[in-house]
Amino acid sequence: MSRLFVAIGDSFTEGVGDWEPRLPNGVRGWADRVAKQLSKEDPQWRYANLGIRSRRLDRIIEEQIEPALAMNPDVISFYAGGNDILEFRKDLDKVLADYRAAVDRLAASGAQILLFTGFDIPVHPMLAPFKRRNWKFNDCVRELAAQYGDTVTLVDYWQWDVYADRRMWDVDKLHMNRAGHRYMAIRILELLGANHQLVFEPFADARRIGFIQATRRDVEWLRQWVLPMFGRRLRGVTLGDELAPRWPQPIYPAQGMKKLHRKRSRHKIANLTAPPAP
């Protein structure tokens, strides 16, 4: 009997930072890795991923929740609100109220719900005020997990010290890199009680860098990532505006995700190049 895992959310769910050009939107991510391992244990597992980078909570609620529930999933992962936390003009109390209502809707489906805290990322002092908003968001997530008991599985990765290592993060310092996504997949599979074949090798001791080199890195990071991010917010555009969900319909990961993506891409090209019907 087939079972279904549906992932909804923003860049965290889409897989940004775990770059893979042979998969949809050029990324893999922890959710693909979880789905693949579930399918190795049982090839009847199906998987859909509706996450799109830069999505705010309101659009995730509007665009993803009902399509996800219409698939009648057994497991739903829900990560949303991170982009709202980074906008001071967003009323955080309103964001949290909308988040609670979304979790209520998901939990009413009877599926197992995965909720996530946000990691307390070491950031430049310029971004420190956002940390307090993140702490308040995390408190809300934990309260909901306690409220719903066995219906909700809490992925409390705020508590996982391994993410304090900068080698778990992509160059933008906001998204996990391949190692970070792999470790996340391992921990989620463990929380689900699923067998898996993933391995995470501990890092060697980090190489220390001097003050001048660290300052240069911070300046370059601000120039390449932080300022463009806030510039996009001021213009009202996002990196996900031209993207579609990676796996909008359930697939069988056991059939090979890269193979399925190639087949889907060929089908799309064939439709674009086909002559119009008479």
Rank of each mutant, 00 (worst) to 15 (best):
R56E: 09
R56L: 14
D58C: 05
R59Y: 07
I60L: 05
I61H: 06
A70S: 15
M71Q: 12
P73M: 03
P73T: 00
V75L: 15
F78S: 06
Y79V: 01
Y79G: 01
G81P: 05
N83F: 00
L86M: 14
L86W: 07
E87Q: 14
E87A: 11
E87D: 09
F88N: 07
D93A: 15
K94R: 12
V95R: 02
D98K: 15
A101K: 14
A101I: 05
L106N: 12
A107R: 11
A107C: 08
A107K: 14
A111W: 06
I113L: 15
L114T: 07
I121W: 08
P122E: 08
V123H: 08
V123E: 04
V123Y: 01
M126L: 12
M126T: 13
M126V: 15
L127E: 05
P129Q: 12
P129L: 05
F130C: 03
N134R: 02
W135E: 11
W135V: 11
K136P: 00
K136Q: 04
N138R: 00
N138E: 04
D139T: 13
V141Y: 00
V141D: 01
V141S: 02
A145Y: 05
A146S: 12
Q147E: 10
G149W: 13
G149T: 08
D150Q: 13
T153V: 15
V155M: 14
D156C: 11
D156L: 10
Y157S: 02
Y157M: 12
Q159L: 13
D161I: 01
A164L: 13
D165R: 00
R166H: 07
R167P: 03
W169Q: 03
D170F: 14
M176R: 13
M176Y: 07
R178C: 06
R178P: 08
A179Q: 09
H181R: 09
Y183T: 04
I186Q: 09
R187L: 09
R187D: 02
I188S: 10
E190K: 07
G193S: 11
A194C: 12
A194W: 07
